[in-house]
Design a binder for these strands. Structure first.
Length: 485
RNA sequence: CGGGGCGUGGCGCAGCACGGUAGCGCGCCUGCUUUGGGAGCAGGAGGUCCCCGGUUCGAAUCCGGGCGCCCCGACCA
């Protein structure tokens, strides 16, 4: 009999660990429909914090929110040739409604470029109407054959930004700006440091001219595409007649961008920070940053509960998200395990012994082992130090993730054999030269299952550019390979 | 879409080869005692054994068909 209160350790079966931790931390649950999931309050609370932070960043960069409908005429999707090719296999289509067959099938949006740019064409007449910078928070549906909680489900929540500009340069700048916003958000909130760069032709978004992405390395050394930003050129503008009159009086097609991140980020957070005890939620995302567990024993019970409540109020005033776990039917130990599984950053314990000494017990989620795991602190010091402790924990998680990424990154491989060796050795990201030949990309994929995650941005490039492609030809660029989610 | 696994109280499972009163752990409810790392005792509630058909005096168990979910591979935020 195994102890089913424990999670399967990551080292034993990483995929099993992930499923268990998501279910048992009550982030999400399976729904009756295959491949779709219910996001539970703890998971949704994390998503809400992500939304709030991202939404602020979008507003700061000049965007407004709007909402476009769920149902899109099939003919819209079919207008852009590459777009329809990319999405056709995963479309869910409404053919029947109100007791009758529909004249034209309606697609449940897999993404909203078509409906949005068709509306933009109505709203934009002059260069004075540009740029048009909108975002929407929505659900989308892509019929997936193989699904995983948060990482790939048929329905998921995301935001999609869609902008229209007068010039290609301005649109390109917007594409890059939003990629940067994503990078900042991932580093500073999720403490998940991504690699950013340009997608290869074979990996880019269907319908885009160029796609950029954020690629984060998970604990099992697989890469997660965590956010994308696309320069759409005039592809959609031409199909939906999105034109404007320029300053010079000429009619021109607008230039578009689109960019998105999804609830997949919650999965990325789990895969980046989680451990064998459960999820670890970075303080800036935690629905509860501190949980106070009163050990309300015997005659002191009332006084202990009052102390817990007083701690809650003090911390709330200090700007900390805090809750008291006053449930009476669970032992303190059971509560400790539960909140550790859910990943609350800091726990405070207060019991009869602490009352007399005016102290509290503080436990940090990432320091559960060893002598120092429980710190005994004077109450006022604990309260005063908490915001700083949360900040340091946030910084620690990022530093730890950066270090893990660097330790699992290899630079240079003269041949596909060497590249394969790196992956045999358990590498995460591998940097090599590339000629730009899709044949080489295909060959590497067959040999190693790794794909080009991106052509890295300057921040991430090797100090000396590679001279040779892994295929043997002259290298035209540096690329990063990884096995991807 | 191919391969594997599973479907039995809320959850996790046993029972099935050999048909005969449906069981265990956890959870849940009530009461009392408890509370510093997954509380104890006592009492209690809760089941169309995935569905349909067949064999049989009798099916969770045998036979046929179907459905669903999970996991592993080809396509993908």
């Amino acid at each position: 009999m195994t102890d089913d209160r424990r999670l399967t350790p990551r080292s034993e079966d990483f995929a099993a660990w992930y499923n268990e931790v998501v279910l048992r931390a009550e982030l999400a649950d399976y729904s009756p429909v295959r491949g779709s999931m219910v996001i539970r309050p703890w998971g949704y609370g994390i998503w809400e914090n992500m939304q709030r932070a991202l939404d602020d960043l979008f507003k700061e960069t000049g965007h407004e929110n709007a909402y476009f409908p769920l149902l899109i005429p099939m003919s819209f999707i079919e207008k852009e040739k590459e777009h329809v090719e990319g999405f056709k296999p995963e479309l869910a289509v409404v053919t029947h409604a109100g007791g009758k067959d529909l004249e034209e099938p309606l697609v449940i949006r897999p993404t909203s470029e078509t409906i949005i740019y068709s509306m933009y064409s109505k709203w934009v007449q002059s260069y004075r109407d540009l740029p048009l910078l909108l975002n929407q928070w929505a659900n989308v549906m892509r019929w997936e054959l193989r699904t995983r909680l948060f990482l790939r489900t048929s329905e998921f929540l995301w935001q999609e930004g869609h902008t229209a500009h007068a010039t290609a340069e301005e649109a390109e700048e917007e594409t890059r700006r939003m990629l940067g916003v994503y990078r900042t958000f991932m580093e500073e909130w999720i403490a998940m440091p991504p690699l950013t760069g340009l997608k290869s032709e074979s990996e880019k978004f269907a319908g885009a001219v160029r796609s950029y992405s954020c690629e984060a390395l998970m604990q099992d050394n697989r890469a997660l595409q965590a956010g994308t930003s696309h320069f759409l050129g005039q592809n959609f503008a031409k199909q939906f007649d999105l034109t404007f009159q320029s300053e010079a009086g000429e009619e021109e097609y607008a230039w578009n961008t689109s960019w998105g991140v999804s609830t997949r980020l919650v999965g990325g957070m789990v895969l980046t920070h989680g451990d064998d005890d459960g999820v670890v939620v970075p303080p800036r995302l935690a629905p509860a940053q501190v949980v106070v567990v009163p050990i309300a024993r015997g005659e002191d019970g009332g006084a202990v509960r009052e102390k817990a409540e007083s701690l809650r109020l003090q911390l709330k005033d200090a700007g900390v998200r805090v809750r008291v776990d006053a449930r009476d039917h669970l032992s303190p130990g059971a509560k400790f395990y539960e909140w550790e599984r859910k990943g609350v950053p800091i726990r405070l314990e207060v019991g009869p012994k602490d009352l007399a000494k005016e102290q509290v017990v503080l436990v940090n989620r990432v320091e559960l082992e060893g002598e120092k795991r429980k710190q005994f602190l004077p109450e006022d010091e604990a309260v005063k130090s908490l915001p700083g402790r949360l900040d340091r924990l946030q910084a620690h998680l990022l530093a730890r993730a950066v270090q893990r990424r660097e330790e699992n990154t290899r630079r240079g491989a003269a041949s596909i054999d060497e590249l394969a060796d790196h992956f045999e050795d358990g590498a995460g990201f591998v940097y090599t030269g590339w000629s730009g030949d899709p044949g080489v990309e295909e060959e590497v994929k067959e040999r190693t299952k790794a794909t080009i995650r991106c052509i890295p941005d300057p921040d991430f490039r090797s100090s000396t550019p590679p001279e040779r492609c892994v295929g043997g030809e002259k290298a035209e660029m540096e690329v990063v390979w990884a096995r991807a989610y």
